[in-house]
């Protein structure tokens, strides 16, 4: 289990770097901002990669990621509406957008006695396109607010934490982590589903019901993440693959490792986004820019 020790050490290093490294000298106030950023980074990166691992396992499809099922686009749409109407990012609207689109995807995919699992992907992809178009319309209408929506679409960990939202954010993070712990119990089911739905059914797994639980839980989790820090891409798609390359296919290890690796990766990407240029880049830009070469290196090795 030296690999476990290694990724834990790298994770802790990423936390320390995330707090210490930045363009401005460290004082008490900056320190507090950075600690919050690190907490949000662990939460968002961990949850995104965890959901990616869960969904890739459920659908037996390595290209599925949290955003495939439409909830992230829903959140982006909700938040964009919030920016247009109230002039500020509204986590509540984002969250409602995510849940609303989730329910809509489910309604499209639902069929009497049919294979819900396969229909969810197509319904999710279709709804994502619709939401993206609507966001574009809002961006064209918005004009001035374009910049804010762009950050939302690419993801940004530097949200302002103050007395009015601190408690809510802590509560949301605790709820999300509780849900993650609950979903971890399904590692065996995921291992079995990868061997075919009939095998799974024969062993006593109710696939319809299981798919529903996983779909709505991940919709909820992604809604929470996107409504707080925006639609950070790439983490949920690639980190589960990195985890599999390191730890093999068993979900008992993969789900946990994906969380830690996702958190580490997002923290490092966020640190880079602060120091790479004079302006702070949206972290989603950095995750792809840095992540793709790293992944190609790992994959080709």
């Amino acid at each position: 289990m030296t690999k476990t020790a290694l990724i834990t050490i790298i994770f802790l290093a990423a936390v320390v770097i995330g707090i210490l490294v930045g363009p401005t000298p460290l004082d008490a106030q900056i320190m507090q901002l950075r600690v919050w950023r690190v907490i949000l980074g662990i939460f968002a990166g961990g949850v995104l990669a965890f959901c990616g691992c869960l969904l890739q396992g459920l659908f037996g499809n390595p290209l599925v990621e949290p955003y495939t099922l439409g909830s992230a686009s829903g959140a982006a749409l909700g938040a964009s509406v919030g920016i247009l109407v109230f002039g500020a990012i509204s986590p509540v609207l984002a969250f409602l957008g995510s849940l609303g689109v989730g329910f809509f995807v489910y309604t499209i995919a639902r069929i009497e006695g049919g294979l819900l699992r396969d229909r969810l992907i197509l319904a999710g992809v279709v709804m994502s396109f619709l939401c993206s178009s609507l966001v574009m319309i809002i961006m064209v209408m918005g004009g001035r607010e374009l910049y804010e929506i762009l950050y939302l679409l690419m993801g940004y960990l530097g949200i302002i934490i103050n007395d009015s939202n601190r408690l809510m954010i802590i509560a949301l993070i605790i709820i999300a982590l509780g849900l993650v712990a609950f979903l971890y119990r399904f590692h065996r089911e995921l291992d079995i589903i990868s061997q075919g739905t009939e095998t799974a059914a024969g062993l006593g797994i109710n696939i319809q019901f299981f798919s529903l639980i996983v779909f709505f839980s991940t919709t909820l989790l992604i809604g929470l993440v996107v409504s707080l820090v925006g639609a950070i891409g790439f983490v949920g798609l690639i980190i589960p693959h990195v985890s599999k390359l390191l730890f093999g296919p068993k979900h008992r290890f993969n789900l946990g490792a994906s969380f830690i690796l996702g958190a580490t990766f997002l923290l490092l990407a966020d640190t880079l986004s602060r120091i790479i240029t004079v302006y702070e880049l949206p972290v989603g830009v950095v995750t792809s820019l840095v992540g793709v070469p790293f992944f190609i290196y790992l994959y080709k090795r």
Binding site: D191, S194, Q195, G202, L203, G204, P249, K250
Partner: peptide
């Protein structure tokens, strides 16, 4: 419950595709 049934009856499908290389 299907779990109980699976303790008595085992099913071998015609072909098993392993999406993950266990």
């Amino acid at each position: 419950p299907q779990r109980k049934v699976a303790q008595r009856v085992a099913f071998v499908p015609q072909e098993t595709h392993f999406a993950l290389n266990f």
